Amino acid sequence: MKNIRLVQRDYIIFNEIFRWKIITGKHICNLTGFTGQRACNQRLYKLKNAGFITRQKVLYGFPGIYKLTSKAKKLIAVPNYKEQIRLEQVFHDSKVLDTAIYFHHKYHIPFSDIATEKQLHSKDGFSNRKHRPDFIFSLDRKTNCVEVELTPKSKQRLEKNVLENFQNYHLQYWIIPDFKTKIYTNLSELQRGYPNIEIIELGEIN
């Protein structure tokens, strides 16, 4: 391992890696203000060689996923539990971060004003596994939530989540594959009773 001198941006990188379930080099570049991907990759390579982060290839054709080592977790004072990557959730969790970056650019929301599902569960206590959206953000002093819904849930479960979001947030944004899916049909029907629902096609995010 090589020793390197850490700078403020490195701590931002560590915190972003920890608070999202899945994060790639492209995400880190967007989240932490690098001028280009090459400069970001070079810094990540140095942090990896210094033993602060790991990069895992978990699916063919999918970019490497970054995680913190215990060395980095100690530096930013976060729990040192082992984090499992759920292969069936990799695409979804990656799209959640793509969506956060989209909202950041569209509404000029600072990333510091975005709280992830992981952070929300941490505040709840991990023994209290109630439903939480994929992330929430503040805009004009109002808190909104975002749900990335790529596979259909039962209508009963979907309405339960919609109701909870209706009670707790100003607007609830639902990101779905396209407007031809069963998810869209069910959400459109629920909009009649829950007018704070906004539906966005995944293609707009990409």
Rank of each mutant, 00 (worst) to 15 (best):
H170V: 02
P79A: 13
P63W: 02
G36N: 15
T35W: 02
I200E: 02
K82W: 04
Q56F: 08
Q84D: 08
N186E: 12
N128I: 14
S154Y: 02
R141T: 11
I12D: 11
C40I: 07
L190E: 08
F137L: 06
L150D: 10
Y45L: 12
K153D: 08
L163P: 00
R86S: 12
S188N: 13
I85R: 01
I175K: 03
T181P: 01
I109M: 05
I85S: 02
Q191D: 03
N15C: 05
H92F: 02
E201I: 02
T69K: 07
L163T: 10
V58D: 00
A115N: 03
Y169N: 06
S188V: 08
I176M: 01
I205G: 07
V78R: 03
E159D: 04
A115Y: 03
L59W: 01
L68N: 06
T143V: 14
K46C: 08
L202S: 08
Q8L: 10
H121R: 15
G203C: 02
S94E: 06
C40F: 07
S94G: 09
N165R: 08
E204I: 13
W20N: 14
P133T: 11
Q167M: 12
N196Q: 13
A100V: 11
G203Y: 01
K26Q: 11
E117G: 14
T181C: 07
I28C: 05
V7P: 00
R19C: 06
I28N: 01
T185E: 11
Q8G: 08
V146E: 01
N165A: 13
V7T: 12
R132H: 14
K46V: 06
S154K: 11
P63N: 03
E189V: 10
R157V: 14
L171W: 06
F91G: 01
S70T: 12
R43Y: 08
I22G: 05
I12S: 09
Y66A: 00
P79F: 09
I205F: 05
E83T: 14
V96I: 15
H170I: 00
Y11G: 11
D10I: 05
F126C: 04
L6R: 10
R132T: 10
N168Y: 05
L202Y: 06
D178S: 14
L150E: 09
Q42D: 12
Q167F: 07
T35S: 13
L120D: 03
F137P: 04
R38Y: 14
Q156E: 12
I85Y: 03
